[in-house]
Amino acid sequence: MELIQTLHHPDAVVGGSEYTRLSVRALIAHGDQVLLLYTARYDDYSLPGGGVDDGESLQQALLREVAEETGARGLTVLAEFGLVEELRPWYKPDYDNVRMLSYCYLCDALPELGQTALEHYEVANGMEPRWVKLAEAIAHNEAVMAGSPKAGLSIARETWLLKRLQRHLQQAA
């Protein structure tokens, strides 16, 4: 998959030890709306997806994560969208950094969502799936980043991907 973005956290240890984490993200659009996860704790929008379990293919992980987080039905993978690489400080003492590799895919799903299977921390953070106008989600995340000196790489990654999706959809129209 083509590397489309590299992000480095300012506190990452240059030349430090690294743990690699594989993740997947789905970009699902219907017209001017995109299926996102709103998280009340952070007041932000993010793409559905998450970590790849041992023995899982990227696409198996994508289908599982999106179904769990959104209840999406009829989910199909349309195409690769690109790889985003991030280097962040790791919070456990065994490594200095985590290198997050997010494999992003264009997908399709039915508009009506079914039951979610959110993890405990996702429920505690107030995570819920929503169909949102793409431009509104971008504007919302940008306002959150502008208003918080603590805005991290996650919201920057998600907003960058949403803007790239917006350009992709405009070019396809």
Rank of each mutant, 00 (worst) to 15 (best):
D44H: 12
Y45I: 00
Y45Q: 05
Y45K: 08
S46E: 15
S46Q: 12
S46K: 15
L47C: 05
L47R: 03
L47G: 03
L47K: 02
L47D: 01
L47Q: 08
P48V: 06
P48T: 13
P48I: 04
P48A: 08
P48K: 05
G49Q: 01
G49T: 01
G50K: 09
G51W: 09
G51A: 15
G51Q: 15
G51V: 12
V52E: 00
V52G: 00
V52R: 05
D53Y: 11
D53K: 15
D53L: 12
D53H: 14
D53T: 07
D53N: 13
D53S: 14
D54I: 13
G55N: 10
G55W: 03
G55R: 08
E56F: 02
E56Y: 01
E56V: 02
E56L: 02
S57F: 02
S57H: 05
S57Q: 01
S57T: 15
S57Y: 04
L58C: 10
L58P: 06
L58G: 10
L58R: 11
Q60K: 14
Q60M: 09
A61F: 09
A61V: 07
A61Y: 03
L62R: 07
L62Q: 02
L63K: 15
L63D: 00
L63I: 14
L63Q: 09
L63E: 09
R64S: 03
R64Q: 11
R64P: 04
R64L: 07
E65H: 06
E65K: 11
E65L: 07
E65G: 06
V66F: 05
V66W: 06
V66P: 07
V66G: 07
V66C: 08
A67C: 04
E68K: 14
E68L: 06
E68R: 13
E69N: 01
E69P: 04
E69R: 06
T70K: 07
G71D: 02
A72P: 09
A72Q: 08
A72N: 05
A72I: 11
A72V: 04
R73W: 02
R73F: 03
R73N: 14
R73C: 06
R73G: 10
G74I: 08
G74M: 10
G74K: 11
G74Q: 12
G74R: 15
L75Y: 12
L75R: 14
T76W: 06
T76A: 10
T76N: 07
V77I: 14
V77D: 10
V77R: 10
L78K: 12
L78G: 13
L78D: 15
